[in-house]
Nucleic acid binder design. Sequence first.
DNA 1: ATGACGATGCAATGCTATTGCAATGTTAGC
DNA 2: GCTAACATTGCAATAGCATTGCATCGTCAT
Lengths: 146, 146
Amino acid sequence: MGPHTIEMTNDIEHRLKNKDINPTAMRLLVLDFLTKQVAAISLNDLEKGMGPSDRITLYRTLKTFEEKGLVHSIEDGTGATKYALCEDNCDGDQHHDLHVHFYCNTCKETFCLPNTKIPEISLPKRFQTEEMNLIIKGICDQCHPG
Amino acid sequence: MGPHTIEMTNDIEHRLKNKDINPTAMRLLVLDFLTKQVAAISLNDLEKGMGPSDRITLYRTLKTFEEKGLVHSIEDGTGATKYALCEDNCDGDQHHDLHVHFYCNTCKETFCLPNTKIPEISLPKRFQTEEMNLIIKGICDQCHPG
DNA sequence: ATGACGATGCAATGCTATTGCAATGTTAGC
DNA sequence: GCTAACATTGCAATAGCATTGCATCGTCAT
């Protein structure tokens, strides 16, 4: 790492630079928005949640964040890719977020369950794992009746 | 169930009627094709594999098969939904195919691993499971080097 | 025969993801 | 400060899969 001569104006900017992402105004806004989310969001959600912005730029911002290991994408089966912030030990090459994702059939939100890890799976002979993706669908704690 | 007066001309027709699916010529052909597959197939694969047929009809045939519990669909992250035959203990309401699906990064095929079941996952308090979907990506036995 | 119903085929549409390209902003060297 | 090089942004356009509407056709029961 280089010398610590950079002046950080705030935490958001710091987190972008840490991941080697040029902190433009747009990216600061997007990361700030992502930080405030409880659930994973789609490109549509982001577009609606941000002020008037270009959809494609937001799309590419998310892609950049994903490449650099700042967010990870989730295919929850709804057809629209969802994005959520990674945990700290994530880098671009290898996402370490082997946690379970939960889709609530009631509120239609997708959540990361960072403390629920995907267990070891023993595959048939000569199958080699590189990635795992576990989506559990059901009813989330907030929507749970009673 | 009604009296066993139906004459089965072959196994394929039998399997359709067992699932309460009207055995039309098209459906016999599609089920026959599905039976011959080693990997899960997309609508495109089906269209290419069959003789000249209408894509929409094939689409609806797959949907019908899925509703009736004859096939299950797999979202493997490639963008195109894949379909594969269910195991026998499957019905329309509740798919019992809680097995792992494997996507090979080399040959790009998606396989069912019917003997590799998704283990019990203990979720945080008040989260309730209704469905599970585990996709493992890596290198399949056929593509494994050495 | 005929009427009801399911299946099929064609057309059209919606939605998400993705790329090309031009315009704009930013940075480094002179 | 000026300019070239590069990154970012915005707009237009396209690709690909999923899905629905509607007309036609076939089948079956009355």
